[in-house]
Amino acid sequence: MEVLFTSDFLINLFSAGVRLAAPLLMAALGEIIAERSGLLNIGIEGAILLGALFAVFGSDFSGSPWVGALSAILTGAALGLVFAFITVTLGGDQVVTGTAINILALGLSTYLFRLAYGLEGFSHEVEFFRPLAIPLLSEIPFIGPIFFKQSFLVYLAFIFVPVVAYYLFRTMWGLSLRAAGDHPRAADTMGINVARTRYVAVTIGGMLAGLAGSILTLSHLNIFVENISAGRGFIALAAVVFGQWNPAGAMFSALLFGIADALQLRLQTISNVLPYQLLATIPYILTVLALVGVVGRAYPPKALGKPYLREERGS
């Protein structure tokens, strides 16, 4: 067990933790934007999955991971728009709509994947984002190799933390978005277009979820496998709650889940304390425990999940 405490092991562990946290963080940031506007979109699981596939398609057809990431963003945006149309325009139930999108994405990604690469279950390796050492910063002992030898999309997820926080809490745009999520009727009276705000928020949320999917295929594995998202969308949903709907909070919870995941993956190879199937349950158990731990301290946006239909005014 002493292998656990060498500095090489710890650097390796935390750097993998940061890498594994990135897709959770990216999806959680998108979901924070959506939920702050009042929409609970559990369809981000599907957006991650389908985004992961279209990232591979884009990179495969063009030879450039940038095109892959862009396809993933567009895929996520499309699913976000479908969600917005059914929940905002038609006023449909958000949880049911999100579930439908997840089922659709699971079916469609498997279908298109088998169509493109055969029934075998592996895509060939595509061009991906290679690790990018940042000059000077990556030289810092311990910290450097953990945080500053990552790939572009991983940096982007962490750069988005202050960006999203700034837009949410320091701009008029963020103020109206939060108003739509807390008091849609009051926001409406103030002249804020609640429907449009929610459309924009959940579309951006979908884009970030799609991008999160592209991290899985263009920065982690470099191939697509069926159901590659494996519940990460739901872990990201839990990270939003655990992070109390704040970008910085989401970052810490994503890092917690990421490091736990990295740890169980390493324990699978170096120890025979527990069989790997039981180790693999750790991120999921931790997610449940995190939700228990935050009970009584988590206050969601007040109108989260409730449809707002203008004609209800005054009725």
Binding site: V96, A100, N102, Y111
Partner: peptide, 15 residues
């Protein structure tokens, strides 16, 4: 896998 795709679409259209 087209079947699960159809299922997702069915639910969307039901809503």
């Amino acid at each position: 896998a087209i079947v699960r795709t159809l299922q997702g679409l069915v639910v969307l259209f039901v809503i």
